[in-house]
Nucleic acid binder design. Structure first.
Lengths: 210, 210
DNA sequence: GCTTGAAAATGAACAATGTTCAAGAAGAAT
DNA sequence: ATTCTTCTTGAACATTGTTCATTTTCAAGC
């Protein structure tokens, strides 16, 4: 029950190792991609046995899912840092920040969106919920911009916008598919928002409507 | 040199088996996902040895890539069947057809977009080219709708639209992520196009602009 | 400090799966 | 019929996820 004061030496080591394993796994995924992640590599880099990895995370998916979980958290933090002064600017800021984050951690994001579980075990609900929370960050600015829209419409719209921007960015950063230069991709996202917001009847605050 | 008339018995068997292997592989990917594709399962279902699979396709990626290649081809055929009478209707038709195709062959499309090569061997150029050809189908209607836009802008726009629609559909069909009901997804794609085309200054032909 | 019991760590062994290759079989060429 | 080429085979190998009996480590009680 009391879980703070008594940090046994054993628990400390366990916790330290847990963090170390996650850091190593994340580093491998980030630099060489999810496919290159091997239990033995993790164990060797962490200076422990493969059994310890299993003892801590249950199975291999457990390691991956924990890394993915932390990726969404980091993303949410970054997106949460976008200024909420002007709703239009906020929407642009969210898209731009998502692009930055994706460009910096492309392989981690791919791990989050593309990893399939063994057999057909369900993807953990909490990660799903986290992703939804992340793109729920668009709700407030959208509500301010479309005061007459009901909640369902706002939710649908934010999902649409998120998915669309995600598509543009993820395919744009896919070297093999299209290979858009990063600076151009940024412009592409901006122009996309320009057109789409205009189509929704939203005009940028700072700019004249000509 | 002469490659048509002399169809040796050997070549016939080889070709038949090749088709059979591909059909089996495609069927497994389509029903159980790429992760469930195993060489031994293919060999057993095709009534041959694993060596024969390797002999025909080089390695495992070879099988997957060939299936992916045929998936893009099938997609291109389907998209090519969209009527080109009215450019606006054509754009809606392309999106709708993409949605249909994706819904019917979700796992095949995921295999196409998510499969990563072993190590970091490059993804085959021809598949890349085929995908680009597929979404180049949007060029003609866009040119008709935006006669003043230059080629670069058209290309950029078609890429953006394709990526956005792809994002909406692929995330929308991802049970684990959002789980949008198919009929609602269709409406979502339509509304997306409504807004975006309006933002580009394009008004539907059949409908009054009110 | 020693004993004891619980928790964790170990790593060898196992299982699943991609890959290779020497030997054999099958078809084509002469 | 013989030879030659090509394909096929499947056992063996390599890689990698997973398990588990054994050992080690640590905390608690005396």
């Amino acid at each position: 029950m009391n879980n703070v004061q008594e940090e046994s030496l054993r628990d400390q080591k366990k916790f330290r190792r847990r963090l170390q394993i996650l850091e190593i796994a994340r580093s491998i995924i980030a630099t060489k991609g999810l496919r290159s992640l091997k239990v033995r590599d993790i164990a060797e880099a962490a200076g422990c046995s493969v059994g310890s990895v299993y003892n801590e995370f249950g199975d291999f998916d457990g390691v991956i899912l924990t890394v993915n979980r932390e990726t969404v958290q980091a993303l949410t933090v970054r997106l949460g840092g976008v200024p909420a002064d002007d709703p239009v600017r906020q929407l642009y800021g969210l898209a731009e920040t998502y692009l930055e984050f994706f460009a910096e951690h492309a392989n981690l994001l791919r791990s989050l969106f593309e990893h399939r579980m063994e057999d057909d075990r369900p993807y953990p609900d909490d990660i799903l919920q986290m992703v939804m929370d992340a793109f729920a960050l668009m709700h407030p600015p959208l509500v301010r911009l479309l005061p007459d829209a009901d909640d369902v419409r706002i939710a649908l719209l934010s999902r649409t916008l998120f998915s669309a921007v995600h598509g543009i960015i993820s395919l744009g950063l896919e070297e093999r598919m299209v290979a858009v230069p990063p600076q151009m991709l940024r412009q592409q996202v901006e122009q996309f928002l320009d057109a789409h917001l205009a189509g929704l009847g939203i005009v940028p605050a700072g700019a004249p409507s000509s």
